[in-house]
């Protein structure tokens, strides 16, 4: 009983502190997925437009972001870009976090949007073109509305990847959930296992419903066999 009372005291003490970290995690992950989705949407649509040269560049962009760990990308955005001497590339840690995470997210979104557009039956686009719609109107009215529905299940699991990636931001001193936990441990060094479990629980409460949503959306909107993690 004493053990429970003891741990409960810790929870009550740390609760507001952890909540502050969770709020920052939420904020950064939402902003990053929003920006990343916009970039990814544009690149994904461009990837299906059929220009060889453009596709080459987009694939290079995807391979660069997919072939290196996110932590390395974060170091490059935070430490290497300022040393180029270009003033507007000298980010503070918060901006560096959002820039790197948005780029990282966009690599996932690009592939999903492109795959979803490819998954729309080709007869749809052919019919639209044959009744005289322009290429742009075909995308606007036929392909994108049908494709967007397909992206919902994988987007939910990508959001989970983004949330989990924010934990890495603690290394550049962003006081998000993981960093707040580290600081809490410096103040109460006796309860390392308990405090880290508490952090894990916070992440779990945040991420698990998203994974369930993804699973539910798969049943509702169907899958096209890509991007699911």
């Amino acid at each position: 009983m004493e053990w429970i009372a003891d741990k409960w005291d810790i929870v009550v003490q740390l609760y507001p502190f952890m909540l502050k970290g969770l709020w920052l995690t939420f904020q950064i992950s939402i902003i990053s997925i929003a920006i990343g989705s916009i970039i990814g949407f544009v690149l994904g649509v461009a990837k299906t437009a059929g220009s060889r040269l453009l596709n080459g560049f987009i694939n290079l962009y995807l391979h660069l972001l997919r072939g290196s760990p996110y932590l390395v990308q974060l170091y490059i955005v935070y430490f290497v870009l300022p040393s180029t001497g270009i003033a507007w590339l000298s980010f503070d840690s918060y901006t560096a976090a959002i820039v790197s995470l948005s780029l990282y997210t966009s690599s996932y979104v690009t592939e999903i949007v492109a795959a979803a557009i490819h998954a729309v039956p080709s007869g749809q686009a052919e019919a639209a073109r044959s009744v005289g719609m322009s290429k742009f109107r075909t995308y606007q009215h036929i392909l994108v509305p049908q494709a967007l529905k397909l992206t919902i299940p994988p987007m939910a699991s990508i959001y989970v990847i983004v949330i989990k990636s924010t934990a890495v931001l603690s290394v550049i001193g962003i006081s998000e959930l993981t960093r707040q936990g580290e600081v809490a441990i410096m103040r109460m060094p006796g309860d390392i296992m308990f405090i880290y479990s508490l952090i894990a629980l916070f992440y779990f409460i945040y991420c698990y419903p998203m994974l369930r949503l993804s699973k539910w959306a798969e049943g509702r909107f169907g899958t096209f066999g890509g991007g699911d993690r």
Binding site: V160, A167, T178, I192, M193, A200, C207, Y208
Partner: peptide, 23 residues
């Protein structure tokens, strides 16, 4: 499986590296 998929790898590494020795 759900626990691993819903928590960041970094926190799992901390749990093993810093947390495990205490128990």
């Amino acid at each position: 499986i759900q626990f691993i998929r819903s928590t960041p790898l970094l926190v799992q590494i901390y749990l093993v590296y810093y947390g495990l020795p205490t128990i």
